[in-house]
Design a protein around this nucleic acid. Structure first.
Length: 667
RNA sequence: GCCAUCGUAGCUCAGUCGGUAGAGUGGCUGAUUCGUAAUCAGCAGGUCGGGGGUUCAAUUCCCCCCGGUGGCUCCA
């Protein structure tokens, strides 16, 4: 929801401009993009946005205050627990404590204490104190002392928040009193290390959530339960789609016949899209001599995460962890004119990465997976056009496959204050040579004359980043910029989609790369007969097929659109007396290239339906005396509605449903 | 890799305070001939993740491995 905006005079209290009837839902204020507590005073005459607890900013503040509420309760119950720090996610918060391990069995007691603090509606008050005063308050908590020392300069002041007996070092803002935290719940518990460093001490992390009202909290909890019920591993077992053999090939997914159908349909659809957008399909080997990984830089950086092996004769090989060197190898077979560009290769490319044991998880994080990969070798002046083309492909695909329009775009750009972290151009002030270098790993001196009198040239980054930005703007896409989030080798656009359960997934990526062209000395011949470096665009739309199938299954709860469904029709005769008619129907469906199966077992019709349900057939066709006599079908859809159809009518309808990749069924 | 937790029949799970295991479901066989979420009966399935130790005896207790799950870290 949108917040209201009201003018305020310099020095006025934000709380004084909150309309009386909104007092119970306005919890903070915002001016010039900075958040304030309601009891702060306005720094200037300006518009103040009043933050409603139901707004995006409001919910963040609520979660943050709920985290403090948790810490308040924990320290009340466990006197020796030391609060470290909290953080908020989309719907959840966590708080890390140094304390003896507890379990979710302890949650009711903690929640009860939290409830009491809410009931007594304790005021949450800010004080501004000198650093020394703050250090004195937190003298028994070394974690807070660390935080104070890193965040506050010696002679500066900072804020602390007090709610009853509980004090927190925090920059706020917060809800005005604990009574605003109407609906909350603790969710889970896990361990973590101080500052995320595995060498530092273990901490207890408690996750929770909070909402402006009970209704929203319940909706969240139901969604969460539904997500567990829809776990792709469970659906995959029920529908017999894929398996793992943890003894023989840990982390490697095996697709069973049904799963292979889904995977192939997705791949075939992507092939069509690639073709229509000028991405030519190639095929590359899975095993390469290690020299290519040394040249690409993967070996140096990811050696420990690669499958590497040595043959009897001493030759060293590695499984590909990325497809780009393979595509580059193909690109290098030729010399290209500027007129040949862009050269765009695509491939459902299977890669292997030795994920650490604790990092694997079902299909979402396997050790072998297939990317709908593509590498465009483009002239710098083609980045815009190619990015626009890709940004048009993405919504088309997700609309078709998932039926979703909820797509968001992140533009990750470089942090110009730290150019050493990136591969950027330098110009030698001594000999005027121009070259690319990453100062964080290479010694910063001229390759030509050895001089270290160099100046940075951002033009390559600036042009490329401008092109990405312009592509987003041309298509009127809403996007967010993230300075400092670019990879060292180039800026990128990451694309997120929201699934049926409201979860956001990063799927697609459009990544510019200045680095590989340098490593492999790629070039094309320009109009003036000079060699010019192309830029590589790495792109994937689904991301990996494995992860995408997991998301697809959870999004649809396994009830896939017909064109993706492994079992499109399932024919059930009412009794064995109608087997002949059922067999005829099933054969007719198969002849029409439909994936149909028939159940000729002696079970009752109810039992047959019961048993096949977990396979999620798109249509169940029941035939008996009536249908046989009138040459019709009794069809039951995914929503358990039944309808009579003429045979030909049904077949032509569902063939149309398949050809048009429809999400909805014919009735 | 780290912390926690788990590994018993194809699947879901029970059980053994140490005496080599059970249910439901699925599978097979037979009866039933059935109108949209379980008709009945019988039978066959397990060296209780792997290795070692303690013990007269280990699936159970101890140790080490291998895997799974939830987090942490990581994700080119």
């Amino acid at each position: 929801m949108d917040n209201i905006t009201i003018k305020i005079k310099k020095g006025g209290k934000f709380n004084d401009i909150v309309p009386e009837k909104l007092k119970d839902r306005i919890i903070a204020a915002k001016m010039n993009d900075k958040l304030y507590d309601l009891f702060d005073t306005a720094p200037e005459n300006n518009d103040a946005e009043l933050i409603d607890i139901h707004s995006g900013d409001g919910e963040k503040i609520l979660l943050h205050s709920a985290a403090h509420l948790l810490a308040n309760a924990i320290t009340d119950i466990h006197k020796d627990a030391l609060p470290n720090t909290s953080n908020e996610g989309e719907d959840t918060f966590y708080y890390d404590f140094k304390m003896d391990p507890i379990s979710i069995e302890d949650f009711p007691l903690i929640e009860k204490r939290m409830e009491e603090i809410v009931k007594s509606n304790v005021k949450i008050e800010k004080s501004i104190l000198n650093k020394s005063e703050i250090l004195e308050i937190f003298k028994n908590n070394k974690y807070k002392i660390d935080k104070i020392n890193t965040n506050v300069n010696d002679n500066d002041k900072s804020s602390i928040y007090r709610q009853g007996n509980y004090i927190e070092f925090c920059k706020g803002p917060h809800v005005p009193s604990t009574g605003y935290i109407m609906a909350f719940k603790l969710l889970s518990i896990s361990s973590t290390n101080y500052e995320g460093d595995i060498n530092k001490e273990k901490m207890i992390r408690i996750y929770g959530t909070a909402f402006p009202d009970k209704k929203a909290l319940n909706a969240f909890l139901i969604r969460r339960e539904e997500a567990i019920k829809r776990d792709h591993r469970k659906i995959g077992t029920e529908m017999d789609l894929f398996m793992f053999d943890n003894e023989r090939a840990p982390g490697m997914p095996f697709y069973t016949p049904n799963g292979a159908i889904i995977r192939n349909e997705l791949i075939n659809y992507m092939k069509e899209i690639n073709k229509s957008h000028g991405w030519e399909e190639v095929w590359t080997a899975h095993v390469f001599k290690d020299i290519i990984w040394k040249q690409s830089g993967h070996y140096g950086k990811y050696k420990n995460d690669m499958f590497l092996f040595q043959l009897q004769n001493g030759d060293n090989y590695g499984l590909k962890p990325m497809n780009c060197p393979g595509h580059i190898t193909i690109f290098q077979r030729n010399v290209y004119s500027y007129r040949d560009m862009p050269v765009k290769y695509s491939e459902p490319g299977t890669v292997y990465r030795y994920e650490k044991s604790g990092e694997m998880g079902g299909l979402t994080r396997p050790r072998g997976f297939t990317i709908d990969d593509g590498h465009g070798f483009v002239r710098p002046d083609q980045v815009l056009e190619e990015t626009v083309s890709l940004l048009k492909m993405v919504p088309e695909i997700f609309k078709t496959v998932l039926g979703t329009d909820e797509i968001s775009y992140d533009l990750s750009i470089m942090d110009k204050n730290n150019p050493e972290n990136y591969l950027v151009s330098y110009i030698c002030n001594n000999c005027n040579a121009k070259f690319e270098m990453r100062a964080a790993v290479d010694e910063l001196k001229c390759y030509n004359c050895g001089s270290s009198d160099l100046r940075v040239d951002f033009s390559m980054w600036d042009n490329a980043t401008d092109n990405l930005r312009e592509a987003l703007k041309n298509l009127n896409l809403k996007y967010t910029e993230y300075p400092g989030e670019a990879a060292f080798y180039g800026p990128k656009i990451d694309i997120h989609i929201k699934d049926a359960l409201g979860r956001s997934w990063q799927l697609s990526t459009i990544q510019l790369d200045f680095f590989m062209p340098v490593n492999f000395d790629l070039y094309y011949i320009d109009r003036d007969d000079k060699r010019v470096r192309p830029i590589i665009i790495h792109r994937a739309i689904y991301g990996s097929y494995e992860r995408f199938i997991a998301i697809l299954l959870e999004h649809f709860n396994g009830k896939l659109p017909l064109w993706l469904s492994p079992l499109q029709t399932y024919v059930i005769p009412v009794s064995e007396n109608y087997n002949d008619y059922a067999v005829k129907i099933n054969e007719l469906l198969n002849k029409n290239n439909l994936r149909s199966r028939i159940d000729l077992s002696g079970e009752t019709i109810s039992k047959k339906i019961k048993l096949i349900r977990k396979m999620r057939p798109s249509y169940i066709i029941v035939v008996g005396e009536r249908e046989k006599n009138s040459n019709t079908l009794s069809v039951r859809n995914r929503k358990d509605k039944t309808k009579e159809f003429e045979i030909e009518e049904f077949i032509s309808n569902i063939k149309n449903e398949i050809e048009n990749h429809k999400i909805d069924q014919i009735f």
